[in-house]
């Protein structure tokens, strides 16, 4: 069931893309692409798992993200910019997928997920469940900041917000997540807000 939904989503994403994306004439060669993929795919997969809340969707979106990144064929000043561009593409397609699912992060546990749980590989931790209750942008920003160690400028580039607004957005997301984790500290006179 989930597989069908995911496959359909990916097909829809592909159809949407076909109308808009031009194939670039300056595509990466195989060696360069594979080296870049090897450096970034694990980090991107983890990001997508936590942002989409589902492993299978992350698997599919990962390949879609690399395909669009490759087809765009843009040139970048640095490895950091190239990586940010990839994460930005992944962020956009994850948001599209999220919207298509009517704003639901996680589908009910299906057989595939159940088998992962049976094998002691449940990636749906307390944190994952708490993240699911945040807005997509909040999930993205928190993961980039504290799992990837991205700077505010990098977060702004990936998430598509003004660099000056990252600090405030992160603070609100942190407060919300801390509450959801049940670790919200008692409010005291020391609070700076």
């Amino acid at each position: 069931m989930t597989t069908t939904i995911v496959t359909r989503e990916i097909a829809l994403l592909r159809d949407a893309k076909d109308e808009t994306v031009e194939v670039s004439s300056s595509l990466m060669d195989e060696d360069a692409f594979r080296a870049f993929y090897d450096r970034t795919s694990r980090g991107l997969w983890l990001f997508l798992v936590r942002v989409t809340g589902e492993r299978q969707i992350a698997d599919d979106l990962l390949q879609e993200a690399y395909y669009r990144f490759y087809r765009a064929g843009s040139t970048y000043e640095s490895e950091g910019h190239r990586r940010n561009a990839l994460f930005r593409i992944a962020t956009n397609i994850a948001r599209d997928a999220w919207r298509r699912r009517g704003g639901i992060v996680n589908t009910p546990i299906d057989e595939a997920t159940a088998s992962i749980v049976d094998h002691g590989m449940d990636e749906r931790t307390d944190l994952a469940r708490a993240l699911e209750r945040l807005k997509p942008k909040q999930r993205e920003m928190l993961w980039l900041a504290y799992a990837n160690g991205s700077s505010h400028e990098e977060i702004a580039e990936v998430v598509g917000v003004a660099p000056g607004s990252v600090k405030g957005l992160l603070r609100r997301a942190r407060t919300k997540l801390a509450e959801l984790l049940g670790n919200a500290p008692q409010r005291t006179g020391k609070e700076t807000r």
């Binding site: 798992v49 944190l127 942190r174």
Partner: peptide
């Protein structure tokens, strides 16, 4: 401090989650 406590709990939770998965 409320803000620093939230930062500490969120940053450590996410970093350890990343290590775990």
């Amino acid at each position: 401090c409320t803000e620093c406590a939230a930062l500490a709990v969120v940053a450590t939770s996410i970093a350890s989650d990343r290590r775990d998965i």
